[in-house]
Every structure is written in C-alpha cells, then in structure tokens.
Design a protein around this nucleic acid. Structure first.
Length: 750
RNA sequence: GGAUUUGUAGCUCAGCUGGUUAGAGCGUUCGAUUCACAUUCGAAAGGUCAGAGGUUCGAAUCCUCUCAAGUCCACCA
C-alpha cells in the first residue's frame, strides 16, 4: 500500500466496478424488502452545486439499507425546469440581439431543446463523482414520452373529476418574461413609494378624496368604495363620481373590505388591475375594463396609451396637478411583488388560465401528515406545511412558456371573435390581434396556425381534449404549458410507473411505491413536497412517501448564501478534486444537525481528508504486521466467526466496544442523525481504535488477529459515509470475497 | 404584521426525549516522535451554555418574557 491515500487513483476505478457489477440495482438483493428513494431531479442543463452534494444523505441511507439486505432502489432523473430554463435561454437569445418574439412556438421549443440536449448529461457525471449509488439504468427525464403521457393522463382524470377548470381572473404577470406565475413564484419586496391623495369630484357637488399608490390605473376605475359604517361618507353612498381626467361617471359603493383608518377611508376600485378590487368587482357585479396590455403598456385610456406604468404614473400625476385634483402626496412604505427570476414588478392582469381545485386534494395532504402516515424530519417543518396548505387557494397551472408540457386541450373554432392570437407570418413578421380581424386582413387560418405564438381563448370558447377532436372541424391549440411543479409533483409515481412499463418489470411499481424517504432541501417544502403529496394521493390513492427528510442549505464560509451575482459560488467538483469525494461527503454531514444550514468550512474539509488518510494508514499498519509477523489472521471476518473462536479478555473488551458502536451507529442512521453517527465514528476510529487499540497491539501482537476483523467491521460502518476509501481498503484485506458495497451490515445478534 | 429558527470555548459548530468534572474540528501553549500516518502522539489553557424569571431534588436541555441575528409567509389601496 502507498504511504498516503490517493483519492484520484481510487474513486473512478471503484465507481466503475460498482456500476459494472450492477450493485446499484435493487436486483442485487432480490429477496429483500423494498427501500426506495427517488432523487429530486436536478435541472437537466444545470451544474452540480451544494444543493446536489447534500444528497449525500440519500446515499448514506441507500448504502446502509443495501447492506442491511434490502432491495434498495435509488432512482435518478432530471427536470426540464420550464421557466428556469426558458429564462436562461432567453438571456442567450438576448445576447444575440433576439427575443422569443422572433420565433414561432415550434421553433422556439426546438431551439431550447437543442440547447438543453447539448448540456444534458453533465449533471449525471457530476453525481457519479460524489459516489452516489444511483440506479442509472432506470433514469428518467421529465420530458420523456412515457412521463409526459402519465402527466397528461393525470390532467385528463382531474379534468373528468371536475378538479380542473378555466377561469378569467387576475394573475401575477411578468411583462418581461411574458408569463403568469403562481403566488409561490413571486417575491415580496418592501419599497418606499408615494401615497397619492386624489380628489374625485362628486356629481352632486363637492369632492371625495381617495388615497392610492397607483394613480395611473384610475382610467380603469369603476367605482369609489367606502366602509358602510363610515360616518364621514355614509351620505355619499349611492351617489355618482366624475372620474378625474375622463369625466366618466362611476358610483360610490360600500364594502366592508375597506379599512377606515387607512388613507382617507375611501378607495378607488380598479377590478382589472388589483387583486382586492377584483374580488370587490365580482361581488358587486362591476365591469372589468383592462387598461394594461400583456406587454405592460397602457391601452384604451385615451390619455396615457403606449406608456409603461412608471411613465403613465408620472403623466397622470402631472395632469392631476394641473387640474388641482391632487390634494397631497406622502411617502409610503409598501410591499410590491416582483418576478422571482428577473425581479420585474409584477402586474396584476386579468387573464384566462387553467386552475386546479385544491380543496379536496389539500385536505387529504394535511390529514396524512397529521395522522403520522407521512413523517417530516425535522419536526419543525410540519407546521409550515400544514399552515401553507390550509391557506392554499386554487392553483394556477398555466404558464405562458413554450418550454414545457403543453396543456393538452384544444379550442373549437365556433366563434372567431373568441380568440386573440399572436403569430409570425411566412416572412417572419409578427402580428397580433383578434382572429377574425386577422383573417379579414387576408391571413389564412393555416398560416396563422403554422406561425402561432400564443392563443388566448375567451372563457366561453369550447374546450375539447385530444381524443374528442372532430376531423371535420377546426381547432386552435392551447398554447400554455404546465407549471413545472405540476409535472414534477407527479415525479415519484410517474418514474416508477414509467419503469413498470418495461419488460420484466411486473410488480415493479407495487413493490417500490410508496417510496420510503423523500429527501430534499427544505426550501421546496411548499412548491414541491406538498404538491407531490396532493398529486400522489390523487393519482395512486396512496401517499408518495412515508418519510420526508430535509437538509439545510450550504452557505459560503462567511455564512452568506452562495449566488452567482455575489460571485461567492464554490464548485463542489473542485473540492472533490482537492480533498476527495469521501472527505467532501464526510464534511457535509459531520457537525451539522439534520436540516440545519451550514457554512462551507475548509478546516472541516481538511480534517475529513486527514481522516481518510488516517484510515488508510491504519489499514497499512495492519497489512504490514500481517506480512511481517507471518501469523495466521482470520479468513472470515464475520461477527459469527468472531464469536465462535476463543478470545481472551483483551479481545473481548474490544469486541464489546465495536458491538456497542455498531448498535449506536445503526440507531443514529435509523433516526437520521447523521452528524452524530459521523462524529461518533470519527472519534472512535481515531481516538479509540487507532490511539489505544492499535497502540496496545504493538506490545501485544496476538491482539492483531481480532483487531483486523474488528477493523473490517468498522469499514462497514463507515462505508455509507466514505464509500471509496473503505471499499478500496476492504478489497485489499484478504479473507473475503465480493465488494464492501454489498457486504452485510454487522449484526451482533447472530 | 404573522410564523419560525438560531444565539454554547478565539473561530465554525455538535449536544437540548432534563441527571456525574459541558464536547469536536481549527486556532493557541508545552512536550515527545519521525517507529502505519505530506505527520502523528501525549498534555494544557480557554465557556456565568444571549439576558431575566419560573417548573424541578436537579436545566445548556422544559415553560414565560426580553434582547440580537437570520429565514419564510402576508391582497391595508
């Protein structure tokens, strides 16, 4: 053996051996009870980061259960990550001076696909570098045909069950990315703005002053609203107001949603561009005149058309000042919602979108956690899970991206006035407008369909599913795609179902579903975990996993979140190169409580690297003694053999210590306390086994015989944490066949 | 505004289903060795466990409050 452990020579060789001999497949233990983990699918064209490195927790569990003899499946996959990927791609387009508006739907999809396909595969090799024992033969991708088929089937069933509906309501719309977002995909930012006090003339005489942060939307006002019990305004309820700048007549109405103490206690109602006002509008049967287009520009105001919100505000305020209708403005702290990707201020816009009725789904998802069918570790995440689900409103699953799974519906062309479309003509010029107008301008239906970018069908349009299409009729496709989480929320059952369709896979799904553990970062508790529970129960009637296990985030050495913009991102691959995969793995679990955030620690990495070297040299010492003393060591390192042979008191003492250690480590892994397991192993191996036991055998060479066998047991206990170095050492010790990865976990009850 | 997490040696963090002198890594000091160890071994210094109160025979560990830092959530225009 070399004097020091050289991870660079070992890791690739060992990984290849494992993979070639099929040790990552559950079939290696065909008769064991099932143990399943589905890897949270990384972005297909992403790179390895510490979020992925933390999946080491899963590898520890998987290797442990494999050694326990379980039929262990750890199934990898990647995610197309709709919005994320399209965002990255559009940035590239921008660099080339282009935008998504230069391409038809099909063209854009093909371009993104090309880009993703070129970059795919990177992450898989990086996960290999970490030593992850994933069953690569069963890998899936969210856009694989069989997965898409399953996702669409789920949609179809939900549609038939009345859980899917279309509605015209306000959405969080990013005018830059050109798509709506669910509440989860928005970021609230505190901002200092102005609160404007605007005098609205009352037709019957006098004024009523309203306070607003968005004076520019007054062109869309349909009412002024006060609290019904507000004595200041009671006499005005039912009277008429002349909208400033336009003289349009709107009523003064009463609603309890008004806070009497805010501003003047009187509010302008703009149903098309404010979430509260939208509700009020529906309740009071008001009209919904939209005055902001999808591009963020104002329209149909007659005064600020073509301007963006900020410019429209400036101009409106100026005009109000001129007319003496601006009473005052004051500084006001407010919270605005911005796009989680590009940080553009989101515009509430009224749009036809697809929704999932969540009531029945969320009730079951809450129940299975409350009754303990699904356990969540650490426990402190149970409350946020339940709280969020209880407050959950219907889920907007429409995204105006092309990169994703198209919502599988078609609109029957009964009334051409029902459709607003945008498309590229055959020369590549962009057009948008109502379908009947465009047809009137001489464009053919086929030309529009061919260059189609987007269809917005009115809520009255007739919807059909693929199989309901009548060949004699004309249809326009829905151009929206699913929210990425709608498909990844089906991931656990979808990947297992898809793998069941292969030959010789009878009973595969039934065997491995529900899965054992879902291990992921806690920051996607809401977006992903809760959706998996809801959709999993809906589609299969069973929970998707029995245990949710969260790991924390890895921050930079100063405790700051790693981000590209801050430039403090550390690439795990470089650390693997420098310290070895085992050391990186060990450093990530050592001294870090389950689920807690941690800061990257170079001293910890260095300590872990020294530990791998220590282990190596312990093995080296034992080997040298074996050769030097020419005494017969055991050829059977099993616990059973140790118990059969006559050993003296000294040996007995150390057998007992290792037995206690084994019990303790098993207990820690079973309870997901990987930090305690690794700390205990580190301490025992170094300061007991090496410092005391090995030292004592220097004056008592007979003790070496049992020591070697106990060392093998310790390699087994360490293997889930440091798979490479332990495997390499194990194979150098004579007296056993096979590989450590498939060795049997020590059991002193034998 | 709500919820939640954290506050333990110089630094980074474990421990917290209450129980003998509170632990690790790194750093610091002293000594040994280069005999398996791009080193290692032995020893030492260093903590009112954020603060205050409470429960208890006994609390870093449970409860309440205060202070500080962080995270998440939130339709007062």
């Amino acid at each position: 053996m070399d004097k020091t452990y050289n991870h660079k020579e070992v890791e690739e060789k060992i990984y290849q051996q494992w993979e070639e001999r099929g040790t990552f497949k559950p079939e290696i233990n065909p008769d064991g009870k099932p143990f399943t983990i589905i890897l949270p699918p990384p972005n297909a064209n992403g790179d390895l980061h510490f979020g992925h490195a933390m999946f080491v927790v899963e590898d520890i569990l998987v290797r442990y259960h494999r050694m326990l003899g379980d039929s262990t499946l750890w199934l990898p996959g990647t995610d197309h990550a709709g919005t994320e990927t399209q965002f990255v791609f559009e940035k590239k387009l921008q660099e080339q001076g282009k935008s998504r508006f230069d391409f038809s739907r099909e063209e854009l999809y093909e371009k993104v696909k090309e880009y993703v396909d070129k970059n795919r595969g990177g992450i898989q090799n990086q996960l290999r570098k970490l030593g992850f024992s994933l069953d690569w033969s069963r890998e899936k991708y969210t856009l694989d045909a069989d997965i898409v088929k399953i996702v669409i089937e789920t949609f179809r069933r939900m549609y038939d069950d009345g859980l899917i509906y279309r509605d015209y309501r306000l959405v969080n719309y990013c005018t830059r990315d050109g798509t709506s977002f669910s509440d989860l995909e928005t970021i609230s930012q505190e901002k200092e703005g102005n609160l404007y006090y605007i005098k609205y003339p009352v037709k019957e005489g006098g004024f009523i002053t309203v306070a607003t942060t968005r004076p520019e939307t007054l062109y869309g006002d349909v009412a002024v609203m006060v609290h019904p019990k507000d004595v200041r305004y009671k006499h005005l309820i039912g009277k008429t107001v002349l909208l400033p700048l336009t003289q349009r007549e709107i009523p003064i109405i009463a609603d309890e949603s008004v806070e009497k103490d805010f501003g003047t206690g009187a509010v302008k109602v703009t149903p098309s561009h404010d979430f509260t006002d939208f509700e009020v509008g529906r309740k009071h049967n008001l009209s919904f005149p939209p005055i902001i287009g999808w591009n963020g520009k104002f329209e149909k105001t007659g005064i600020v058309d073509g301007l963006y919100a900020k410019q429209a505000r400036e101009k409106t305020v100026e005009l109000l000042k001129e007319k003496g209708l601006l009473e005052k403005e004051e500084i006001h702290k407010m919270v605005i919602k911005v796009c989680y990707k590009c940080k553009t201020i989101l515009e509430p816009l009224p749009l036809e979108q697809w929704y999932v009725r969540v009531q029945s789904l969320k009730e079951k998802a809450i129940e299975v956690v409350k009754n303990g069918e699904i356990k969540i570790t650490p426990n402190s995440f149970v409350k946020p899970y339940i709280d969020w689900l209880e407050g959950l409103r219907d889920w907007n699953i429409s995204r105006q991206n092309v990169w994703g799974i198209r919502i599988p519906v078609w609109y029957e062309l009964e009334h051409e006035t029902d459709f607003a479309v945008s498309f590229l003509d055959q020369k590549g010029n962009y057009h948008q407008g109502l379908l009947n107008e465009l047809l009137g301008q001489g464009f053919s239906f086929d030309e529009i369909a061919l260059g189609l970018q987007r269809v917005i069908a009115r809520i009255e349009a007739k919807v059909v599913l693929e199989e309901e299409k009548d060949p004699k009729k004309k249809y326009l496709p829905e151009t929206d795609t699913f929210d990425t989480w709608f498909s990844s929320g089906q991931w656990p059952f979808a990947v297992l179902m898809a793998n069941s369709d292969c030959k010789n896979a009878d009973g595969f799904f039934e065997k491995f579903y529900p899965t054992s553990v879902m291990e992921t970062a806690y920051d996607i508790l809401r977006a992903w975990v809760s959706r998996m529970v809801m959709l999993g129960i809906y589609r299969t009637g069973k929970i998707p996993f029995r245990q949710v296990l969260f790991h924390g985030l890895v921050n930079d050495p100063y405790g700051k979140k790693m981000s590209k913009s801050k430039g403090n991102v550390v690439n795990p691959l470089e650390l693997i190169e420098q310290y070895g995969a085992d050391a990186v793995r060990f450093a990530l679990v050592y001294g870090n409580a389950t689920g807690a955030d941690q800061s990257l620690s170079y001293t910890k990495l260095e300590a872990a690297r020294k530990f791998t070297n220590k282990l190596w040299n312990m093995a080296r010492f034992i080997e040298m003694k074996r050769l030097e003393l020419k005494i017969t060591f055991f050829t059977d390192h099993s616990v059973g053999n140790l118990k059969k042979v006559n050993t003296n008191e000294f040996d007995q003492k150390w057998i007992k210590k290792v037995e206690d250690l084994t019990i303790e480590i098993s207990k820690y892994i079973d309870s997901y306390q990987f930090n305690l397991a690794s700390e205990k192993l580190y301490d025992f191996v170094w300061h007991e086994f090496a410092d005391k036991y090995i030292e004592e055998t220097k004056t008592n060479p007979d003790g070496l015989i049992v020591l070697e066998s106990l060392f093998v047991i310790i390699l087994k206990l360490l293997h889930p944490f440091m798979p490479f170095v332990t495997e390499e050492i194990y194979q150098k010790i004579p007296g056993h066949d096979g590989m450590l990865i498939t060795a049997i976990w020590p059991d002193f009850r034998e």
